[in-house]
């Protein structure tokens, strides 16, 4: 166990304008925030950064990032990985594809992890696995609920078998957190696939999802190619996965903060309850 220390994000970069993937409209950052990252022209969901996400759900100035100096390494000397990492670090200003810390949601303290699809499709390598594991370990030690925003293309194949082992590592930390009867809310955002779906994204006590998010294990195209059948529209949409029994609730963005706040409050420790 580490991470007894926190650091405040001292200065936030000014936000860039967003471009809607559906209608191609340019959405000024201020409007995006005001409109909870829903495109004002067409209603599509804009891609959110972890910082956007925190703005949406966490109490103002309540977020404290876990201070670490973790950095991904191309330890297999995998062709092209070093360049990919460098590009992603430059593009995001983050050392890897997940931001973790503590915050309050409508007054309830919790630990959070927020994955960032801008960083190599939020694939899970050693750093992502380590940060999420430490988040669960911290939450277990401090008896905090965990709210996790999953988004990922899957395991980071450039880290070979070590990336697969992150699924086991994080799962073991989730298991210990759960054994202490602590709450884990997993929020599936677009897209949640591969090894992340096959581990912590699907291990929440409560599994929420954003409308229309892609949620699956095998990629749609892989399934089509393997089975040589075209899949229907909406296959692997969050609604499809909910209808098949694997998601508790689809929560629109403008209701996400309130829903999380209510669920956290419903799990607050009670006097006279079961210890």
């Amino acid at each position: 166990m580490q991470l007894p220390f926190f650091s405040k994000k001292s200065s936030e970069k000014p936000r860039e304008d967003l471009i809607c993937k559906q209608c191609k409209a340019t959405v000024p950052a201020k409007d995006a925030v005001k409109n909870r990252f829903i495109c004002p022209s067409c209603g599509a969901y804009l891609t959110m950064t972890p910082q956007d996400r925190l703005h949406l759900v966490a109490d103002k100035d309540s977020f404290t990032a876990f201070r670490d100096e973790l950095k991904s390494v191309n330890f297999l000397h995998f062709p092209g990985y070093s360049e990919k990492l460098e590009k992603a670090v430059t593009a995001t200003g983050e050392p890897d594809a997940v931001v973790c810390g503590t915050a309050a949601i409508d007054g309830t303290p919790c630990a959070l992890f927020l994955m960032d699809t801008r960083f190599i499709m939020a694939s899970m390598g050693s750093v992502v696995g380590e940060r999420i594991t430490r988040t669960f370990e911290y939450a277990t030690a401090h008896r905090l609920p965990v709210v996790g925003f999953a988004a990922s293309g899957g395991a980071r194949m450039q880290e070979g078998i070590v990336s697969l082992m992150q699924m086991a590592k994080v799962s073991a930390a989730v298991q210990r957190h759960a054994a202490q009867r602590l709450l884990y809310i997993s929020v599936l955002t677009n897209p949640t696939t591969g090894g992340v779906t096959a581990s912590f994204a699907m291990q929440g006590d409560l599994i929420l999802a954003e409308p229309g998010a892609t949620v699956g294990f095998a990629g749609r195209r892989v399934v089509e190619q393997t089975t040589k059948t075209a899949l229907p529209e909406g296959f692997q949409s969050a609604e499809f996965v909910r209808d098949h029994g694997f998601i508790d609730k689809i929560v629109p963005r403008d209701a996400l903060r309130d829903t999380l706040a209510t669920l956290l409050r419903l799990h607050a420790p009670r006097n006279g309850g079961i210890a």
Binding site: D68, E69, V73, F75, G129, E130, T133, K169, A172
Partner: peptide, 11 residues
Amino acid sequence: FRKFGIFEEGG
């Protein structure tokens, strides 16, 4: 399983 992970931390 906790030990898996190859990365740099603070150099």
